[in-house]
Write a protein that binds this DNA or RNA. Structure first.
Lengths: 219, 219
DNA sequence: AACTTTATCAACACTGTGTCGAGTTGGTCA
DNA sequence: TGACCAACTCGACACAGTGTTGATAAAGTT
């Protein structure tokens, strides 16, 4: 049973423990080592041994603190996701009261910033999602949160006559949110083709506005 | 040196060989086994041993035909990508002469169909891209091809006055193409949130048209 | 019939994961 | 204070997977 709870005193949700003693700083050391190594190379090229050594402990001792490498990264992603959720709520609060164009830009900028400031972790999350159901579930919740909020905004704009009818609001929201995810990911990795980091927001905001407020009639 | 050419007679590009004898059918058996197993489970859960046994040979013999598991999948992806490129050129030919709305829908439908009909391979490609530079490069070329074509279409539409000015055509094309990739991937995996398979095309076409022909002015 | 090429696989070397059990250490309370 | 317990540590092991080596067989080629 990989990547599931199984630590010695193991009570908590994922794989982290609830210890209090000096082990607390060991746990932190492991998390910090993981973040540091992720700046250098992808998750797939980091071993449990790398994490243990980086934290100054032996490999078996690592397993006292985390049930697997994945659990470490999941813990780190948890925190990133929580921060991003904060950005989102804040941004949405602004958006609730008119001046949508500027508010939308602000919202996308904040979210983009939240992930860009932890680029390495964001990339690791994408990698982990490919093979870890728990990571998939966590990311899924993040996306659902965004989609729900964006859906509400679109429906409100349509209700007050500011936006024309069109595809179901939720479908539109899903596509737009997924576009953001992919475009941002590409910009972070620098793959080609990808948008320049400074152009990401301009392009995304433009497409969002056109998708929400425009109609689909060519000349 | 994993995933690079290294087979016995090894001349060709990647890791496939140029054998002619009875080994030809072994090679095909390996490729077929890979495709079959990918329908059942992700690439990360398929071992070289699985492929060898599936093809009725021992593991060392597998290495006579392919230098690694990745090389097998790369060969399969190559073919998918070639087929998709065919769809694209065909679709673009239609698009070159007016009636853009219908032509665009047709183009996106064909492309979507090309990948949906080989869903398992498409998903494996996404997984492999995460950790294999060669897969990344291959996919990159596919995306660049699309972006180049779409950029040309947008510029042509702007030149003939059918589409308004806006973000640089290439930037717009990158975001739209990446949106398609992500939305399609999500629909294939059935993750949540994701668009229903029957709704994908409608939603994407709508956003493309609005992004290309609309303006970004809210009411 | 010598020789080469193609094909095959048992056995090996290596890397990485996760577990077991035998410790050590520091605090607590009888 | 000393018996005890929980937190903590790690050497040694069992396993799974990858890729290589070398010996061998079977099919052409000259």
């Amino acid at each position: 049973m990989p990547a599931t709870s199984k630590a010695k005193p193991a009570p908590a949700g994922r794989g982290r423990r609830a210890v209090r003693a000096s082990g607390d700083e060991r746990e932190r050391a492991i998390l910090e080592t993981a973040e540091r190594l992720l700046e250098e190379r992808p998750l797939s090229e980091i071993s449990v041994d790398d994490l243990a050594r980086g934290a100054g402990i032996s490999r078996p001792t690592f397993y006292f603190y985390f049930p697997s490498k994945d659990a470490v990264v999941l813990t780190i992603i948890d925190r990133l996701v929580a921060a991003a959720a904060g950005s989102r709520e804040e941004a949405l609060a602004t958006m609730a009261e008119g001046e949508l164009r500027a508010a939308l830009r602000q919202a996308l900028t904040d979210l983009y910033g939240a992930f860009r400031s932890r680029r390495a972790v964001t990339l690791a999350a994408a990698e982990l999602r490919m093979r870890n159901p728990e990571a998939r579930e966590l990311w899924s919740q993040v996306m659902e949160g965004w989609v729900a909020d964006v859906t509400a905004v679109i429906e409100a704009e349509r209700a007050r006559g500011a936006a024309p009818a069109g595809q179901p609001a939720r479908d539109l929201a899903i596509a737009l949110v997924q576009m953001n995810e992919r475009v941002q990911y590409a910009a972070f990795t620098g793959e080609s083709p990808s948008l320049d980091e400074e152009r990401v927001i301009d392009v995304l905001v433009d497409i969002w506005l056109r998708a929400i407020y425009g109609t689909a009639e060519p000349s």
